[in-house]
Simulated assay, not measured.
Amino acid sequence: MKQLMTTTALEETIATEIAVAVYFAAPNCGVCEALRPKVEALFSEEFPAVKFLYIKIEESPEIAAKFSVFSAPTLLVFFEGKEFLRKVRLMGIQELRDKIERPYKMVFNI
Results as ranks from 00 to 15, higher is better:
residue 103 P to E: 01
residue 79 F to A: 05
residue 56 K to D: 14
residue 55 I to F: 04
residue 76 L to M: 07
residue 65 A to W: 09
residue 13 T to A: 00
residue 17 E to M: 05
residue 82 K to M: 13
residue 70 F to Y: 15
residue 79 F to E: 10
residue 95 E to C: 00
residue 76 L to K: 01
residue 66 K to R: 12
residue 72 A to V: 02
residue 97 R to P: 10
residue 33 E to G: 02
residue 77 V to N: 02
residue 109 N to I: 10
residue 56 K to V: 13
residue 45 E to N: 11
residue 2 K to D: 14
residue 72 A to M: 04
residue 81 G to T: 11
residue 20 V to W: 01
residue 73 P to A: 02
residue 5 M to Y: 13
residue 94 Q to K: 06
residue 96 L to V: 06
residue 7 T to S: 09
residue 86 R to A: 06
residue 8 T to L: 11
residue 70 F to S: 13
residue 48 P to Q: 02
residue 35 L to I: 07
residue 39 V to K: 00
residue 86 R to G: 10
residue 57 I to L: 11
residue 98 D to N: 10
residue 78 F to I: 09
residue 60 S to E: 13
residue 64 A to N: 08
residue 56 K to Y: 12
residue 8 T to H: 10
residue 87 K to D: 13
residue 81 G to S: 04
residue 47 F to N: 07
residue 95 E to W: 01
residue 101 E to V: 11
residue 53 L to M: 08
residue 15 A to C: 08
residue 16 T to Y: 06
residue 44 S to Y: 08
residue 17 E to A: 09
residue 36 R to M: 14
residue 45 E to M: 08
residue 15 A to I: 06
residue 106 M to E: 14
residue 19 A to P: 10
residue 6 T to P: 12
residue 7 T to L: 09
residue 4 L to S: 00
residue 6 T to W: 00
residue 100 I to W: 00
residue 42 L to W: 05
residue 98 D to W: 02
residue 55 I to G: 03
residue 77 V to T: 05
residue 54 Y to L: 15
residue 9 A to M: 06
residue 24 F to E: 15
residue 101 E to Q: 15
residue 19 A to H: 01
residue 104 Y to P: 10
residue 64 A to T: 09
residue 16 T to M: 08
residue 97 R to H: 14
residue 48 P to M: 07
residue 33 E to S: 10
residue 38 K to W: 07
residue 72 A to W: 01
residue 66 K to P: 11
residue 84 F to W: 09
residue 23 Y to F: 15
residue 80 E to Q: 14
residue 77 V to D: 09
residue 2 K to R: 12
residue 47 F to H: 05
residue 63 I to C: 04
